[in-house]
Amino acid sequence: MITFPNESQEYRAARKTLLQKEIELRRAMEDVAVARRALPPGGLVPEDYVFDGLGPDGKPARIKLSELFSPGKDTLIVYSMMFPRHPQETRDVATSGGTAKLARADQPCPSCTALLDQFDGAIDHLEAAGFNFAVVGKTALENLITLGRDRGWTNMRLLSSAGNSFKRDYHAEADDGAQLPMLSVFHRDADGIRHFWSSELGFAPTEPGQDPRAVGTCEPLWNLMDFTPEGRPDWDEQLQYAGACCH
């Protein structure tokens, strides 16, 4: 057992009890990961979706879903962001950079943007470990590229699904056309490309006082807050902050 300077016996006893709960949580997370990996094969994708993206030469190109799988890497992680933002979104819009030129309804979701700010630095590591990653938005490719430039993203592949039904088919778009966030995983096998898993927790009922945590286990920002005495505040991400050093 470890202790820290000047802590009380009361603190150590409570921390020991909490540690047991943390161990139980770790076991539960491992159990969920094992169960996820053991899922039977998912459905084959209905078509080889074609997206608008940037080709190897940096110029706009038509890119098939199958082309997002690098040689020897059979798993593709896709984050479907809300771009344009949800019609009921009330948070402030970007007021600087190229994204600020877009109308309010056409600007991106601040929460999706904040999550991707966090993901961008991890992509080199993710790809080195053997995985593919892409971001899909329903907006025009030009808007995605502009947002990436405004945010300083340098590692993520940005794709527009404006010309296909990918987001609708994989529940990242509501029946009325409103955009929804979704993290999806696809796997390539001998039969083709299959859907493996998506963040369906975002569609599950929530319990009083609980965060939906649809992608909660992979979002550093909110998880860091969970370690603090204050916990998760009554607060939402913004596209810009007064006095911030960046973005």
Rank of each mutant, 00 (worst) to 15 (best):
V215E: 01
F51T: 09
A61T: 13
A33K: 14
T99P: 01
K21M: 07
N143F: 08
K101I: 07
G202H: 08
M29I: 14
Y79G: 01
A134S: 07
W222A: 01
E47V: 14
A244K: 02
W235M: 05
V32T: 09
I145M: 05
D234F: 09
L221Y: 14
F119C: 07
R151Q: 12
M29V: 15
K21L: 11
D31V: 13
D175N: 12
F227M: 11
M225F: 15
R157P: 03
A38E: 14
P84Y: 07
L39V: 09
R26W: 07
P87N: 04
L76P: 03
R36D: 11
F69M: 05
H171F: 14
P46I: 13
R27E: 12
E127H: 09
F186Q: 02
E219M: 06
G72C: 08
V32A: 12
M225Q: 09
S184R: 04
L126V: 15
R12F: 09
R91T: 15
E67A: 15
L18M: 10
W197M: 04
P233N: 05
I63F: 06
P71I: 08
A61W: 06
Q179F: 06
R149V: 10
Q238G: 01
F227W: 07
D169G: 06
A172M: 11
P108E: 08
A100W: 02
I123G: 02
E207K: 12
A38G: 06
N143C: 03
Q240M: 04
D234A: 12
E230Q: 09
S184N: 08
D124A: 13
M225T: 10
P108A: 08
D150T: 12
V34C: 00
P5F: 13
G209W: 06
D106A: 15
A61E: 12
D211C: 07
D92Q: 09
E67Q: 15
A100L: 04
S198H: 10
D234C: 00
N6T: 14
E207F: 11
